[in-house]
Design a protein around this nucleic acid. Sequence first.
DNA 1: ATGCACTAGATTTGCTTGCATTTAATGCAG
DNA 2: CTGCATTAAATGCAAGCAAATCTAGTGCAT
Lengths: 125, 125
Amino acid sequence: MRSEGALIERWRSLLTSYNEVAGHLERALQERHGLTLSEFEILDRLSAQDCEKRRMQDLAADMYLSQSALSRAVARLEKHGLVARALCEADRRGVFVNLTDDGLARHTDARRTHLTILAEHLRPA
Amino acid sequence: MRSEGALIERWRSLLTSYNEVAGHLERALQERHGLTLSEFEILDRLSAQDCEKRRMQDLAADMYLSQSALSRAVARLEKHGLVARALCEADRRGVFVNLTDDGLARHTDARRTHLTILAEHLRPA
DNA sequence: ATGCACTAGATTTGCTTGCATTTAATGCAG
DNA sequence: CTGCATTAAATGCAAGCAAATCTAGTGCAT
């Protein structure tokens, strides 16, 4: 295969971009809003969905986090009052996660930082 | 800004690709060669450089790892006999890292896996 | 209704990481 | 030579993560 070199190069570049951007994001979100990148991503998803796709597993499904990591992250968010868990009456194994007002506000703030950092550090492809 | 949407989309796609590929790589390298992705990256760099850029700090410089993480990763590799540390006589604070024969062999094997996984999971841009 | 397989989440465990600190070597100023 | 700032790498520590395990709810078959 001739494409090996190109393949590795693309991977390296992906790795570099990712770490560069993720690093800055992580630091900025933590510093200015007390949020982990994972936590922000959760808030982001919760604020985006209009429909009822708010069960843990639905979140887990379109995130890169493991189920256990998600569970922890949601627990943290809940402890800080940004999110509330609610039992699902239909299937009581399930848990709905909802943004609180504080959570929404926090997300709105953090979103600006998020965009700023992306604009600064995400290379034009 | 109109480009906000596009920016976020690109970030999401980066995030997704990265996690997809890194996840598979991590698992495959671990399973088949007992290596962390970070560890593989270290071996990869060591095998690539012909010149003497093998001091810890040089490695750290072109990697995404923090100095402490690198120190620990090299310690692990050393414990498994894939790498050897050598004092730098010129500046005795410095430490050179070298591949052992085993390390070279391991890298050669792992490299195939690496390429295979990339070919399978790294989307064409 | 009872037993069993299955699913949703929580929790336990062990590992890697980053930050902050520490130890040791340099090297420059007095 | 002594003291002080600087640099290289190692280490203590806290936090996040994934994998495996555990707990509880569901629902189907007998």
